[in-house]
Amino acid sequence: MRSLLLSLQSEFYKSRKTLAFWAAIVLPLIICGLIAFGFLSNADKIIKMHFPSQVLWMNFSGGALGVMGMLILPFYVIFMAFSVNNIEHKNDTWKSLFAQPLNKFSIYAAKYLYAVILIFICLFLFALFTILSGYLLQALNSGFTFNGYSPVALLSKIYFKMFLSSLGILSLQFIISLIWSDFLKPMGIGFIGIIAGIIVATKGWEYAYFVPYSHPTLALSMTKSKNMDQLFSQEIYSSLIYAVILFVAGYFIVARKSIK
C-alpha cells in the first residue's frame, strides 16, 4: 500500500509540468467557457424562446455533453493512456522504475490509477464548470431562467456514468500504449476504435456493448431515453468488466516488458 501511494505521488510529481496533467483542467475550462460565451452573446435569442428551467439547463449542458461521449472523452482517454506510459518510453526509464525497491504491481497500478484519477478530475471539472457557468450567466443576465432548477444531481449522475463508461477504453488503450512506444499506433487504433464505436452505437447494433469505444456514446444515448435513472446499465457493466480484465492482463505485460 505504501508502495502504491509513493508511486502515485511520484506520478503526479513527474507529470505536473506536462500537457496531460494540465489538459485535465484546461480542457473543461475552455469548452465550458466557450459554451457560456456562446450563450451570453446569444442571450436575447435564447431568452425569447422561454425555455422552462430544466430544458434550458439541458440545452446548456448538452453543448458539452453532445460531443463529450463521441469525441472529447474517448480522445482524452486515449491521450491520457498514451501520455502516462510515454513518459517512461521517451526517457527509457522503465528499467530504473522497476529496479526501485517497490512492489512491481504497485508501480503499475499507480500508473493506471493516476490515469483514472485524471479522467475523473477532468469530468468532475466539466460538471462543475457547467453548473458554475450556468449560475454565472444567470447573474450576468437576469433574463435567463437557470435559477429555477438545480441540475447538480442530474449532471453529477451523467458525468459519473461517463466516467465509468470510459474505463474500458482506458484499460485497452493503456495496454496498447504500454506495448508500443510510438504515438501513431495508440492514436491510430484508438481513432479507428472511436469511429467503429460511434457507428455501432448509433446504428443500434444489438451487441454494441462488446465494443469498449462505444460505451460513452451508448451511456449518453441511454440517458436521453428510458434508462435515464439507471446508473449501472449494460454498457457500464461491460466497460467495468473490460477494465478489470485488461488491467490484470496489463500487469503481466508490464512484468515481462522490463526484460528488455
Binding site: L6, K14, K17, D92
Partner: peptide
C-alpha cells in the same frame, strides 16, 4: 544502479529528478 543510459526524465530539472527518486525511496 546505473544501467545503460542514465534513467532521467528530460522534462524535469536535475534537482527534480532527484526529488522524484527521493519520493519513491
Amino acid at each position: 544502479a546505473l544501467v545503460e543510459q542514465p534513467a532521467i526524465y528530460a522534462h524535469l530539472s536535475g534537482e527534480e529528478n532527484l526529488y522524484n527518486r527521493c519520493m519513491l525511496l
